[in-house]
Amino acid sequence: MTTEETGYNFAYLDEDSKRMIRRAILKAVALPGYQVPFAGREMPMPYGWGTGGIQVTASVIGPDDVLKVIDQGSDDTTNAVSIRSFFAKTAGVATTSRTAEASIIQTRHRIPERPLKSGQIMVYQVPIPEPLRWLEPSEAETRTLHALKEYGLMYVKLYEDISRHGTIASSYDYPVEVFGRHIMSPSPIPRFDNPKLDRSPALHLFGAGREKRIYAIPPYTPARSLDFEDYPFAPQSWSQVCALCGAADSYLDEVVMDDGGQRMFVCSDSDYCASRLEKGGRTQ
């Protein structure tokens, strides 16, 4: 099906490419956390700007879907706007900023605060899919390490963090072990969001366009953040609450107010903040 307006196929990609990507997604779902190579296509956005997520979304989206796109937790950041309008134009689907109403949520760097539901699909944009990449530059070698479940190297990194800093110093892109088998990069979400991946009712799909890898966490699959028994994983926490809605349970962005070093903390998830305000949360 071609949309009249653009001359491009529904959701831009041709059906052959979509089929190829769907096959990779099915394989990824069957092997939770395993990075499936796929023949990524050039998209009309630059690599590194979400081409992996866009290809995944283009392959799973249908005319009845409702799409939400966020970047840094917000629907209004420029890249989120750009991707949302791309699908509105090429697929003509309905879009929303409300987490509860979306059937597909494409994201960069955040998972919404509102708990996800069964039937929702999260699509992540992934820059570097390989959690071992900073420790081992060779792709041939890291694939072998995954194949043999040889993860001593990953723990060397965590050990070093503790002996140097007294804590595991990864604040985002914090690796998880999926289904007790593969170690996986959750993409650069803050570790605050990691617990949302564990046994989530939603399907989580990760697309790395430049590196040409797709991986997945199927619904209700355990995703354990790596840690030591005596140094358990802990997400970030704040002493402040959101200055707008008063939320004490959300990830906060720090906003610089003036040259005097005045700061305020507000929800990074703009939909969460807005819906709390609608329901009569605190305003200033």
Binding site: E150, Y151, G152, L153, Y155, V156, Y159, I162, F228, E229, D230, Y231
Partner: peptide, 14 residues
């Protein structure tokens, strides 16, 4: 020194 232990499943930093 710890790498071989961690590869073998040791998960207690101390």
């Amino acid at each position: 020194i710890g790498e071989r232990l961690m590869a073998g499943g040791w998960r207690h930093y101390g």
